[in-house]
């Protein structure tokens, strides 16, 4: 992904559409999986991804920043949209977003393409059960391979807090999978 090229195309009104199309091609798959790991259900992911691209398109002309922060900006919109979607799934507005995890686990059983006993299914179940603060950091670090600095831009949390959350997330998943630290 050549973010520098995308940024230079987006800066000129005559090449803006070309830059936007290149951005879509480069990030659709990555954003889809980032959202899917949070929402589990394909149809929900599809709707949220569509909302993400609408927001990206509307806010791209006002966006300031370099190529490096473009990726973080896209993930920030995707994560915010996913959290808003999960908030709508709560039984009442006073519930925590983590109360939705039970619903997500129930959906997971219907959505997976393999046996629940297989390692990747058990891994995802352990991931879904995590508190959302840990889940978001784990997703962005482990799957999307973002730096802590980029994750800090997305979540607004300090790098130390993010490292702690990531550590707890890894420990929790390993415990559920029965993996011992070497």
């Amino acid at each position: 992904m050549d973010n520098n090229k995308i940024i230079s195309l987006l800066q000129q009104p005559s090449t803006f559409k070309e830059g936007y199309d290149m951005l879509v091609k480069s990030y659709t798959s990555a954003l889809y999986w980032n959202i899917r790991r949070l929402l589990v259900v394909h149809e929900d992911t599809q709707d949220v991804l569509q909302n993400v691209w609408v927001k990206v398109y509307l806010n791209l002309p006002d966006r300031k920043g370099n190529a490096e922060s473009l990726k973080a900006w896209l993930y920030k919109i995707a994560n915010n949209e996913s959290i808003n979607w999960l908030k709508k799934k709560r039984a009442s507005r006073w519930d925590s977003i983590d109360d939705v995890n039970e619903q997500l686990l129930a959906s997971f059983t219907e959505e997976i393409a393999c046996s629940e006993e297989e390692m990747e299914a058990r891994f995802q179940k352990a991931l879904i059960a995590l508190p959302h603060k840990q889940k978001i950091v784990f997703n962005l670090r482990y799957y999307d391979e973002l730096s802590y600095q980029q994750i800090s831009e997305i979540t607004g949390q300090s790098v130390n807090t993010l490292k702690t959350n990531y550590h707890y997330a890894v420990e929790s998943i390993k415990n559920k999978l029965g993996i011992k630290n070497e």
Partner: peptide, 9 residues
């Protein structure tokens, strides 16, 4: 295991 997605698209 973590990198393999069990979901269908």
């Amino acid at each position: 295991a973590g990198k393999r997605m069990p979901y269908a698209v």
